[in-house]
């Protein structure tokens, strides 16, 4: 069974003549540990899809199932609880609380879940070390670079041990080097730490880190590409071809 599954997911904004169909009967399945990139031109509905998957917004029709359970039937409180325990969010603008340090920011979801502060902070510290911030544990967001802030955000997304991590343009506000590092980290989240990652991006280079790319256009899936990581030999061969291409 897939971790996340949508059934004819539809979202219409507004009504009557001004109605805009952001998503039109979208069906996707995401497996545990899979890294999926969602691509498409602006306004194609990729962010809407992400919001619906995360229970941040409710669909007009259709369903989102997480571990087989429909989100549509959940009350606001239950949905909140689900977000807290099952889903981690990574935002384009990092959205760290400016007055809290890295550990406190990362500890937020578990503290909101009622875990006592010292235990929550231990967990947060552990994740911050895993994302490579062992030296910046007590820095405040304004003392961190963009890439470091996004690492804190990723640690925050992972601290509650969610099954699903949703990332909305996680590299949109970063330079290309930091973007690569963050994309690599998200790949690690899926590959090494076994979470499903759904990432909205418009950057093909970042999308190439994923296992699968879903292309959306005008609210429908127009294409889907599964990428296979082959051994080094294959890659070198491709590189060779590239050189020929460049000749």
């Amino acid at each position: 069974m897939s971790l996340v599954q949508t059934q004819d997911l539809t979202k219409i904004y507004g009504s009557g003549e001004t109605a805009v169909t952001a998503l039109d009967r979208v069906n996707v399945k995401i497996d545990a540990g899979e890294f999926v990139a969602v691509m498409g031109p602006s306004g194609c509905g990729k962010s809407t899809l992400l919001h619906l998957l995360g229970g941040l917004d409710r669909p007009t029709s259709g369903e989102v199932l997480i571990e087989g359970a429909s989100l549509g039937k959940l009350s606001d409180d239950k949905l909140t609880e689900l977000r807290r325990r099952k889903i981690g969010f990574v935002f384009q603008f990092f959205n760290l609380i400016p007055v809290l340090d890295a550990v406190e920011n990362a500890a937020l979801p578990v503290m909101l879940d009622g875990v006592n502060a010292s235990k929550a902070k231990t967990q947060a510290r552990d994740w911050l070390e895993r994302v490579g911030l062992q030296n910046r544990l007590h820095s405040r967001p304004d003392q961190l670079s963009g890439g470091q802030q996004q690492r804190v955000a990723i640690a925050r997304a992972l601290v509650a041990e969610p099954a699903l991590v949703l990332a909305d343009e996680p590299t949109g506000n970063l330079d290309s080097r930091a973007a690569d590092e963050i994309a690599g980290l998200l790949r690690q989240v899926a590959e090494a730490w076994g979470r499903s990652v759904v990432m909205v991006t418009h950057d093909p280079r970042i999308a190439a880190y994923a296992d699968r790319i879903i292309f959306l256009k005008d609210g429908t899936i127009v294409d889907e590409t599964r990428l296979h990581t082959k051994d080094g030999q294959d890659a070198e061969m491709v590189l060779g071809k590239m050189k020929v291409l460049a000749e």
Binding site: P204, A207, Y209, A210, I213, G232, E236, L239
Partner: peptide, 21 residues
């Protein structure tokens, strides 16, 4: 286009993997 793009992405993916290694 789909076929070509899938191929390009696959290449990009592979090189990206190489590059990170």
């Amino acid at each position: 286009i789909q076929t070509q793009r899938a191929k390009l992405y696959q290449d990009l993916h592979n090189i990206t993997v190489q590059r990170t290694r």
